[in-house]
């Protein structure tokens, strides 16, 4: 590293830091969705990546339909598409919960396997519907380009937009969890399922809503993902391990933990990728996290609720 001057290093860190922000936003959104589902019922949703891809494909579909039928709506469709992606993923998630997950709550490891089977089916559905080639929605003009406050420093606008989206979703989720009556019921169910049932909370519907919510957030992650990469049938599965590590490393069920670990993982990957060629940056990041998890399995921000 001796060949870089201090000035260079500063710029590299800034540039890669901003590049990492897009990755951070996607990982954070993925992680938030997983944290809701995992924190709620200890269920690991292996199809979470496919829900992200579903969201991305929804945005693509919206983009194609807009271009076809309402070209004048072009500049604004993206905002609407994010909502549609959320709703579609949440609906599919609720259906999956009703058909499959609710029968497996007492066997968390089996849920993991069953949702993997689901992810195979979803991937093949994407492949049959949209083809094996990667697709990209046409992004509105205002998302393109970059903003340069000084020489040698470009901040991509889409990165900023995605960051704003991720922060907005995180805040909305926090408000939802801590201020709404549903959030209260959800937290009650996580803390003590039997007692919550006894005081009249319908824990089954809380489970379904939580699962749908998590999947919906994955859909928003998919919408964010379309601004930084093109979507293929297996796009989701490429992020799934990172998303799991975000949740586990952050401390399950801790939203703050997910935030901190998503930031750490994304920035480490992004900065290391500059100095180490190829996938070595990613390997190094993953290795550090796995070793850290072996030493401190409860993660960064362990929840104070004892696991049942």
């Amino acid at each position: 590293m001796e060949s870089y001057s201090w000035e260079d290093l500063q710029n590299i860190f800034l540039m890669q830091g901003f590049a990492g922000i897009s990755l951070f936003s996607v990982l954070l959104l993925m992680g938030l969705g997983l944290a809701v589902i995992f924190g709620q019922m200890g269920v690991i949703n292996m199809a979470h990546g496919e829900f992200m891809a579903l969201g991305a494909y929804t945005v693509y579909l919206c983009s194609t339909l807009t271009a076809e039928y309402a070209p004048s709506f072009g500049p604004y469709y993206f905002v609407v598409a994010i909502f549609i992606a959320f709703i579609i993923c949440a609906l599919v998630g609720a259906a999956v919960e009703w058909l499959m997950i609710r029968r497996l709550y007492h066997r968390p490891l089996d849920t993991l396997l069953a949702t993997w089977g689901l992810s195979l089916i979803m991937q093949q559905t994407f492949r049959s519907t949209f083809g094996a080639r990667e697709v990209t929605p046409t992004l509105p003009e205002w998302l393109m380009g970059s903003y340069s406050p000084k020489e040698g420093l470009d901040i991509p606008i889409n990165g900023m937009f995605v960051l704003g989206l991720a922060i907005a979703v995180s805040l909305a989720l926090l408000l939802f969890m801590y201020k709404s009556s549903f959030g209260l019921r959800l937290r009650a169910t996580v803390q003590n399922r039997k007692m919550s049932g006894a005081v009249g909370i319908n824990t089954n519907s809380v489970d379904r809503l939580a699962f749908a919510l998590g999947c919906g957030i994955a859909g928003i992650a998919g919408a964010a993902f379309t601004t930084i990469g093109s979507t293929g049938p297996d796009s989701g599965s490429r992020y799934i391990v990172d998303a799991f590590l975000v949740v586990v490393f952050g401390g399950a069920a801790s939203l703050m933990g997910s935030l901190a670990s998503a930031f750490g993982i994304a920035q480490a990957q992004s900065i290391l990728e500059f100095f180490l060629e190829g996938t070595k940056g990613k390997v190094a990041t993953l290795l550090v996290i796995v070793v850290a998890l072996m030493i401190r399995p409860q993660g960064l921000f362990p929840s104070k609720v004892r696991a049942h």
Binding site: L104, L113, A114, G117, L120, Q124
Partner: peptide, 13 residues
Amino acid sequence: LYLMGGTFIAVVM
């Protein structure tokens, strides 16, 4: 892939 995914879900459930 449909068959494999379906079989797997069925076996697990």
